[in-house]
Design a binder for these strands. Structure first.
Length: 732
DNA sequence: CCGGAGTTCTTTTTT
DNA sequence: AGAACTCCGG
């Protein structure tokens, strides 16, 4: 590792500035991970910092894993014990398992995922006699999640209630928290919120970690929510060696309460902070960078910065206007085939990015027809699949038979004739006698309160669980899972249930078995509980890796952090990107519009060599007739000289073969100004002042000489087209 | 308790 | 159009 040689001057500065708060604004493709990993390695190797005095937090396990690997290889060590590189949530679990008893929780708590939360909320509504139709559990779920991200307790939520519904929600929230505690469970948001509570209420614990983490590093800082912000704030108070890395232009999770102000206001929170901008891009061509920038620059809430590269301008951005969605898909497939052949590109070079998952279907159909292999990211998640959830529920019950949600899930799976009625009786009995559910079953089995047939199966069920628990005491996770599959005949049951799906599901089970085996090999804590933690905190994105020989299909959101030589951004239509959600038809707040614009920016900056935008003139939604579509307003924000319209299928690769396309191009050549012809000392992106309209940004310059027009986005008046000669613009 | 027929609902989602 | 969920009769 040679810092001077392997880093550019700005990167080097970011690595060497180790003391005091530091904000690194790392543009897309600017070598962010490189800076982070070199920084950690530098601290350990050159500054003599002990690995355990470092904390690096990321949002995904994948990012954490990659970072860990790269630091290891930089330092040329086989392992880094006690170095905390982890996600927020894993770090919280680690802290909570050790100290949560201070807050009256049992340290063997389980982690509830979104589905568990929903199930529990339904229970709460039932208990409170609230109709699910008047107050959708999903709505409550998201409200509670948002509240927790803001660190609002049920009481605080109630105080802040503005609508009638909030009163009810506060009620449900309160009961929900009680039930979580009864079940000895924490949901995802609790992991953070409770850790912050722990820091605030138990000073010894806070001091311990403040002292431990002498250097703190946070990745993707633009995506932190308030709870995470406080979490970091507490930990960094002592040493103030806090380095945050992020890009405000890539903040696309506001709907999950990510607060872009965390990054925009960093310098206010830490007045002594140093700011470093990484603006050299190592991924894309200049044309791609310019186009992406010309879109995102229209956002008012952003830090000024502009990416550059020494790669050269590269291809223009292609724009294809399709007749309808199947034409769009057909075009994309054809373009992929052509580039595959003519540039001998592997299929893994291509990504098709869309705003919503529902868009994937037409592309899948066309790809199948064209015989092009693809992988689809997102949609059905591994740990969300029924069979996986069933088996994990078994494991959860084995680990902790007092987990009522898990217990209820498996009680009748495989079917053993214990239905709603029987369950209700047991639950009532449990409530009356103050038993946990499993206990209640055992006790009830001794009485004659149940019909004899139910009694028999319940006996068997209890026996089954007790046997498995005993077995688990002396066996590994994978062995327990194997055994569990045998004694329940789960696979056989699947085949009976749904012979068509069974094969697929059994494959998934094999995958789960593989996951347990891998876990046993790599984890330091090999307990069942640790495996369950890992399962709860692992997502699909973590396992995604570019599949050799396959085109990738995914949403713009999932594409963040990835790169592809050729990117198709499809459905570039007003309403789809920017997306108009159902409730706010045709109206987006400025903040929402800016987030959509950032999403567009993220998509564009995934492309290394070629960026192709497509849209359809007419599109069917669900089963409706075709809707007339307008091009996305973001396309308009791209200077026309960076765009090349393709109206006929086929992409020019090395001199086009299609004479019609050639003809078309010739006609347009003269209309396409080159970069240098934007004269008049004004450039796209310049901030200007106009006598009447005030301040704004030049978005585009069209035409030549007397006819030259300037398109300016004024902060207070919006988009205006002005004649360059008469506009009397001044630089700001 | 099960399975078929109706009903509703479609944003994005690192954990 | 389809999944996913609810509801009701056998």
């Amino acid at each position: 590792m040679n810092l001077e040689q392997e880093l550019n001057p700005v990167q080097l500065e970011a690595v060497l500035h180790t003391e005091g708060p530091l904000l690194i604004l790392a543009g897309a493709g600017s070598g962010k991970t490189r800076v982070i990993t070199y920084r950690i390695a530098h601290l350990i190797r050159d500054k003599g910092v002990k690995p355990w005095n470092l904390l690096a937090v990321t949002f995904t396990n994948k990012a954490a894993r990659e970072m860990q690997e790269r630091v290891k290889s930089l330092l040329q060590v086989p392992s880094l014990s006690n170095l905390w590189i982890s996600t927020f949530h894993s770090a919280c679990v680690r802290i909570l398992r050790k100290h949560i008893h201070h807050l009256g929780f049992n340290s063997h708590f389980v982690i509830y995922d979104t589905a568990d939360r929903l199930a529990l909320l339904k229970e709460c509504e039932k208990d409170l006699n609230i109709d699910e139709k008047t107050l959708a559990p999903k709505l409550i779920s998201s409200r509670i999640s948002n509240a927790k991200s803001c660190l609002w307790t049920p009481e605080e939520y109630k105080q802040r209630a503005t609508q009638f519904l909030d009163e009810k929600i506060a009620q449900v929230y309160k009961l929900y928290q009680q039930k979580l505690k009864q079940n000895n469970a924490l949901d995802f948001d609790d992991l953070l919120m409770v850790t912050v509570q722990l820091f605030q209420e138990i000073p010894e614990v806070l001091h311990y970690y403040q002292e431990l983490f002498k250097y703190i590093l946070v990745d993707e800082y633009q995506d932190t929510n308030h709870a995470q912000y406080r979490w970091i704030y507490h930990l960094a108070q002592k040493h103030r060696n806090l380095c945050v890395v992020g890009d405000d232009d890539q903040s696309i999770y506001a709907f999950r309460m990510a607060d872009i102000r965390n990054i925009l206001d960093f310098e206010k929170d830490y007045p002594e902070a140093r700011l470093i901008k990484l603006e050299q891009n190592y991924r894309s061509t200049q044309n791609i960078l310019d186009a992406a920038w010309s879109v995102v620059v229209n956002n008012r809430n952003r830090k000024q910065k502009r990416l550059w590269t020494n790669k050269g301008s590269g291809h223009k951005i292609l724009l294809y206007t399709a007749y309808n969605e199947s034409d769009e898909a057909r075009f994309v497939c054809e373009a992929i085939s052509q580039l595959h052949q003519q540039e001998s590109r592997d299929y893994s070079h291509f990504a098709i990015l869309y705003r919503i998952n529902a868009q994937s279907r037409s592309f899948e159909e066309s790809l199948v027809r064209a015989n092009i292999p693809y992988t689809l990211v997102g949609g059905l998640k591994f740990y969300d699949r029924k069979e996986i959830k069933d088996l994990l529920a078994y494991l959860r019950v084995i680990a902790n038979s007092n987990d009522p949600l898990a217990l209820k899930r498996i009680l009748n799976v495989p079917a053993r004739h214990i239905g709603e009625k029987t369950l209700e009786k047991i639950e009532n009995f449990a409530r009356q006698q103050g038993y946990f559910l499993f206990q209640a079953m055992k006790e009830m089995a001794k009485t004659d309160l149940l019909p004899s047939r139910a009694l028999k199966t319940i006996h068997q069920f209890i026996q089954l669980i007790d046997d498995l628990k005993l077995y688990a005491e002396t066996h590994t996770v994978s062995q327990v899972l194997q055994r569990l599959l045998e004694v329940t005949s789960y696979r056989e049951w699947l085949k009976e249930e749904d012979p068509l799906d069974a094969e697929n599901r059994i494959e998934n089970i094999q995958e789960l078995l593989a996951a347990t085996l891998e876990f046993e090999q790599n984890a330091s804590d090999k307990s069942l509980l640790a495996f369950l933690d890992q399962a709860a905190l692992t997502s699909d994105v973590d396992t995604y890796q570019t599949q050799a020989g396959m085109v990738t299909l995914m949403t713009l959101h999932s594409a963040k952090g990835l790169e592809f030589p050729v990117v198709f951004m499809v459905g570039m239509e007003e309403g789809l990107l920017p997306y108009y959600h159902g409730s706010s038809n045709f109206y987006l707040s400025e903040a929402e519009r800016e987030e959509e614009r950032r999403l567009c920016y993220v998509g564009m900056t995934r492309a290394k060599e070629r960026l192709i935008l497509t849209l359809a003139n007419s599109r069917r939604f669900y089963s409706s007739d075709g809707w007339q579509r307008q091009p996305s307003s973001f396309i308009e924000e791209i200077p026309s000289f960076l765009l090349e319209k393709v109206t006929l299928s086929g992409i020019e690769v090395q001199g086009t073969r299609n004479p019609e396309v050639q003809e078309y191009r010739r006609g347009h050549e003269s209309l396409t100004p080159s970069y240098s012809s934007s004269l008049n000392s004004f450039q796209i992106g310049d901030e200007v002042r106009h006598a009447k309209f005030g301040r704004g940004v030049i978005r585009n310059i069209e035409g030549q000489g007397d006819n030259q027009k300037v398109i300016v986005y004024f902060y207070d008046f919006g988009r205006k087209v002005l004649l360059a000669k008469q506009a009397r613009l001044e630089h700001v």
